[in-house]
Simulated scan of single mutants.
Amino acid sequence: MNKVPMTVQGEQALREELNHLKGEERPRVIAAIAEAREHGDLKENAEYHAAREQQGFIEGRIQEIESRLSNAQVIDVTKMPQTGKVIFGTTVTLINLDTDEEVCYRIVGEDEADIKAGKISVGSPIARALVGRAEGDVVNVTTPGGEVEYEISAVEHIG
Rank of each mutant, 00 (worst) to 15 (best):
G10C: 14
A13D: 14
A13E: 11
E16T: 13
L18R: 10
N19E: 10
H20T: 09
K22L: 15
E24R: 13
E25K: 06
R26M: 14
A31W: 00
R37K: 15
R37W: 12
H39L: 11
G40Y: 07
G40R: 04
L42I: 11
N45W: 07
R52Q: 12
E53D: 06
G60V: 00
E64W: 07
E64P: 07
I65R: 03
S67L: 11
S67E: 10
S70E: 12
N71Q: 13
T78E: 01
K79W: 13
V86D: 05
I87H: 02
N96C: 00
L97F: 06
L97N: 01
T99D: 00
E101V: 15
E101I: 15
E102C: 12
V103Q: 06
V108K: 14
V108T: 13
E110S: 14
D111I: 05
D111A: 08
E112H: 03
D114R: 06
I115Y: 09
I115S: 14
K116V: 04
A117L: 08
A117P: 07
K119L: 13
K119S: 09
I120L: 08
S121H: 00
P125F: 01
D137G: 04
V138W: 02
V139P: 05
T142E: 08
T142S: 02
T142G: 00
E147F: 01
V148M: 05
E149A: 10
I152A: 07
E156V: 14
H157E: 02
